[in-house]
Design a protein around this nucleic acid. Structure first.
Length: 440
RNA sequence: CGGGGCAUGGCGCAGCCUGGUAGCGCACCUGCUUUGGGAGCAGGGGGUCGCAAGUUCGAAUCUUGCUGCCCCGACCA
């Protein structure tokens, strides 16, 4: 993409409404614009990031055996009355009336909808287990939206729903999602830690929040260093096996958010040198809720012995739009964003230091087309601006690689290549620069 | 929902106290000079001063009401 033909409204100064760093940088880098409190438009650059995140989430859900579908944003009130949550949910639910005075709502979550679909379609235990997910916009009318995209009212969320015949089977389904989550965050270049969460009225040990570590995170967390150093299960994980032992490796170590922190237990359970207190952001939540909705909504299948069995369910959420903010919180410096390669909107920023100079233009055009042909996403700054402004903008955008092409270097047959994360810069021939990027 | 604050061009702000018909920096347009870490000079375009009433000869400025947004707290993927 040529910057001269792109839509990328960069702000030089900080908008005053943005307090936290990810919000500031997303506005400045032209990723988002606020529409109203807690509701944002995603501009082209922001949308690319959102799509990258979404795609990683999707791939890991698919790998774990979940099946994608798409449910609507607007739901009828009726099914929420069936589950009893229409009255229960309160003002967080945005209620709407259509032209026929029918009561509708903008979905804050989809348990009712999916349970309804499943109930009407699946009648036999032979179709179990089943895990269905979608990636869809949700709306929760938060009392006070804040932190930009991190706590908006409208947000993009991946939510999966598992259906099983027995609690034991449901546990296996839960474990799959647990592992998929570890993999998902790691692929985005984040360090995530599962922490035991409130299980609500069901009880048990099957609810975890996934916290991403970031110095500017909203909540304080305490955990065993082993959890931070451990890497996620590999691509070769066999999701058809029971992953209980894998999950056990993670849940066996101490990890708690501040509100559930037990200092005495922390000291007893974790050796002094392994005690870590850090800040984090919640980016996912998984839980088993048993028959909560299947019972009230009468969702049953026929079991092997011919009897009708109420299904056991869990739900598994990932805040996709929130992750865009969370990643920036975890990955930035004083100059701007530092995108981890897998979620970067473009891999390479090609900087023409003297647009209009014949040799410099030619060198850039050549690199631009070669990178394009090699399937590398490039943002080419071909605008007629001063070098300083271009450097500042490129650092703000945080693309992993910069190739800097100026008349001075071109005379010597060289371009400069820079890694945004380490700041390392090297001069080399354009061919070598190309090779360096392609080998990564 | 309790407490605090803000609303003036795309962004950041001054002007308001002490009413007289809107200004600064950045960004944008034109020209010239510049050109490797947010250039200089000259010229230019762009504003229902959040909305509505009121006071007044006259309101960005004073009064009242409303709306929007931000921050702190309780709540949350």
């Amino acid at each position: 993409m040529r910057l001269s033909r792109y839509f990328l409204p960069i702000l030089r100064e900080d908008p005053k409404e943005a307090e936290i760093v990810s919000h500031r940088l997303m506005l400045r880098a032209g990723m988002i614009r606020q529409s109203s409190a807690g509701i944002y438009s995603w501009l082209p650059l922001g949308l690319r990031v959102l799509r990258k995140i979404e795609q990683i989430v999707r791939e890991e859900q698919d790998r774990a055996g979940a099946i994608e579908l798409l449910m609507p944003t607007i739901q009828p009130a009726g099914i929420w009355r069936e589950s009893g949550r229409y009255e229960e949910y309160g003002k967080e639910m945005l209620r709407i009336t259509d032209r026929h005075d029918r009561e509708m709502l903008y979905g804050p979550t989809n348990e009712e909808l999916i349970t309804g679909i499943f109930r009407d379609s699946v009648k036999s235990y032979r179709d179990l287990p089943c895990n269905l997910y979608h990636i869809q916009w949700k709306f929760r009318d938060e009392i006070r939206p804040r932190f930009g995209v991190m706590r908006g009212r409208e947000f993009l969320m991946k939510d999966a729903y598992s259906f099983d015949l027995t609690p034991e089977d449901a546990r296996r389904s839960y474990h799959k999602m647990f592992v998929a989550y570890l993999r998902t965050y790691e692929r985005m270049g984040l360090k995530s830690i599962p922490m035991a969460a409130d299980t609500g009225p069901i009880g048990g040990d099957l609810s975890h929040e996934f916290i991403v570590l970031a110095d500017t995170g909203e909540s304080q967390v305490h955990c065993d260093r082993d959890l931070i150093e451990r890497s996620a299960p590999g691509e070769d994980t066999d999701y058809s096996a029971d992953l209980g032992s894998v999950v056990q490796q993670w849940t066996g170590k101490y990890a708690a958010t501040d509100d559930k922190h037990d200092p005495a237990r922390f000291e007893r359970q974790v050796a002094k040198e392994n005690r870590v207190t850090a800040r984090g952001i919640e980016v996912g939540h998984i839980f088993y809720f048993g028959t909560k909705y299947t019972k009230t909504m009468n969702c049953k299948v026929q079991g092997p012995d011919g009897s009708m069995v109420t299904l056991h369910c869990g739900s598994y959420g990932i805040g996709v739009s929130r992750l865009a903010g969370a990643i920036i919180e975890a990955c930035h410096d004083e100059h701007g964003i530092i995108w981890p390669d897998p979620v970067a909107p473009y891999r390479v920023g090609l900087v023409n230091l003297k647009a209009g100079d014949r040799d410099t233009d030619a060198a850039c055009e050549s690199l631009y087309s070669q990178l394009g042909n090699a399937g590398v996403d490039v943002l080419y700054d071909d605008k007629d601006e001063r070098a300083g402004a271009k450097f500042a903008a490129m650092d703000l955008l945080g693309l992993p690689w910069q190739i800097i092409v100026g008349p001075r270097g071109v005379k010597l047959g060289e371009v400069e290549i820079k890694r945004r994360d380490t700041g390392e810069r090297d001069s080399m021939t354009p061919e070598a620069a190309l090779a360096r990027i392609l080998e990564h």
